[in-house]
Simulated assay, not measured.
Amino acid sequence: MKCKEKLTPFEYHVMFEHGTEPAFTSPLYSEKREGIYQCKCCQTPLFSSKAKFDSGTGWPSFYRPISKEVIEESTDTSHGMVRTEVHCSKCKAHLGHVFPDGPPPTGLRYCINGVCLRFIPNE
């Protein structure tokens, strides 16, 4: 099944047309349970709850992905800014952006649209 058939029109817009969900609207922003965050389209494990932190930005934030291989980066010059965009390496879905203002140990903040993620809690 193709991603477009699995996703709502809004999810598809964010993930494949480089949209953004409004801040503080994703239930995953306040998710506190332990588990894994997968790509909503291809189910690739992207982030662990162990790397999640409250950035105060309104989007789920992580200081590192599960592995370097699951995320690809590109330069985003939209909206008059230069940012580093992050994508799922398997299905190429736009996930959000990474910024150099995160906590130790990486100093990175992966600011991710919650609509791009599926949370799988630990049993």
Rank of each mutant, 00 (worst) to 15 (best):
L28P: 09
P104A: 14
K6N: 12
K32W: 08
I66C: 08
Y63Q: 07
T8R: 13
S49R: 11
P22Q: 10
P22K: 14
P27E: 12
K68P: 15
M1R: 15
P60T: 05
S89P: 01
V115K: 12
K4H: 01
V115Y: 14
I120N: 08
E72F: 12
M81G: 01
F16G: 08
P65Q: 08
D54V: 01
C111K: 07
R33A: 04
P121L: 00
C3Y: 00
P121Y: 08
L95Q: 14
E34L: 15
N113I: 03
K2E: 08
H18D: 10
Y29Q: 09
L46C: 06
H94N: 04
H13V: 05
F53H: 05
N122E: 15
L108D: 12
C91A: 03
V70L: 05
E21A: 07
E73S: 13
S49N: 13
E72G: 06
W59L: 12
M15T: 02
F99M: 10
E21R: 02
S30E: 14
K2A: 04
T57E: 02
L7V: 07
E34M: 11
F62G: 03
E31I: 00
C91N: 02
K2L: 08
H18S: 15
E11C: 04
K32C: 11
F16D: 09
L95S: 12
E21M: 07
K2H: 06
K32R: 14
P22L: 05
S26L: 11
D54K: 07
K68L: 14
N122F: 14
A93Q: 08
H94F: 04
